[in-house]
Design a protein around this nucleic acid. Sequence first.
DNA 1: TTAATAAAATTAACAATGTTAAATATTTTA
DNA 2: TAAAATATTTAACATTGTTAATTTTATTAA
Lengths: 196, 196
Amino acid sequence: MSRKEIQEQRIRNYFIDATREILKSEGLKGVNVRAVSERAGYSYATLYNYFKDIKDLVFICVRGFQEECEQYIESQTAACVPGKSKIKAIYRAYISYFVQYPGIFELFFLEQMNSIGGKQPTSELIYSFPDRLSEKEFMYCEENLIFTRAETEILKSDLKLAITGLLLFYLHRQQPTSFAAFNEAVGSILDRHLPD
Amino acid sequence: MSRKEIQEQRIRNYFIDATREILKSEGLKGVNVRAVSERAGYSYATLYNYFKDIKDLVFICVRGFQEECEQYIESQTAACVPGKSKIKAIYRAYISYFVQYPGIFELFFLEQMNSIGGKQPTSELIYSFPDRLSEKEFMYCEENLIFTRAETEILKSDLKLAITGLLLFYLHRQQPTSFAAFNEAVGSILDRHLPD
DNA sequence: TTAATAAAATTAACAATGTTAAATATTTTA
DNA sequence: TAAAATATTTAACATTGTTAATTTTATTAA
């Protein structure tokens, strides 16, 4: 990277960080051109020197949040024994990340992707994210003949759909109405799909 | 209802119908105060004499779409033999309704419910909708000892979550990318949960 | 080093949308 | 039919996204 590119990327990061902070605290409803730019320390129009539009900026945050989520999961599951119980722990941590930051769930799953340009890559990135998180452990299970290849594929798909649905209803529609009931539903799904 | 109330409800319905039409054709992005009012044949400010705000109006449409969806499902499944195969047909028709009207899926599952007033009832209405649709057939299965009560409860919950998740990814993130692959995923879920 | 040029940032302005207030038109009632 | 109540519309304002014109800052060539 040239000197100019480094400086340019630095300023881009000011805007990205500002957007991340707002997404984590207030969610998407708090993100707008003026709020982001002010937090980044620039005028609202400056944003357009570095990003196509505000949606562009918002979706750039996806990858960063995925990395953060991945690190959080690793910190939460480092001590688990490999195999089924670790897979369960990974999904539990994944869920707990989104419960902690509902705005990030909203961004990942609910926000419209109108920008025709970088649309498919981000979609694919989000869709395959849970699979990537549990990839290593499922491979371990296959190697140790705990699951077949076909079982693994079905399990990954089922868990992704069930957990996304569960989070959607809980975070967006407050169904179930209590956190306790939500947790029970999570436990039921994980235990039935991954019995000890 | 008094004469005045009848006339008032009639005008409310003009706005509701206008909103329904826009939701079905253009989706939520096409719904705004001026577009709805113009289609209803009134000035934009008149809307506020009949509805608290535009979100109020939009969520009033939920019940109507549920009725329409219910009728569509009935027309599609009237000839099915009762039991498991009819349950599958019901969920297939349910899915096909939302594939036909992605804007209605968006309204049901993705739209924010900020109006603090009538919020919980609508959430509950949406959450329990798939259960209500299949209620009769699941009762038939219980009576004929095809499923136990506990199995029924788990099945209803699993199907609701899996199908909502599937529709979310397909309609909102275009994952899977082809309709054929989506249909295959639907078939896989239904056949595994409700084997012949 | 400084004047000319290029680049970056800001302010002004406009469009779209939601909403409210003031003004106008219509209907009801005495 | 005139006064009062009701309904509707136009005007106006706030918010947000975006672009254009202007100003400020940085770079470069003499």
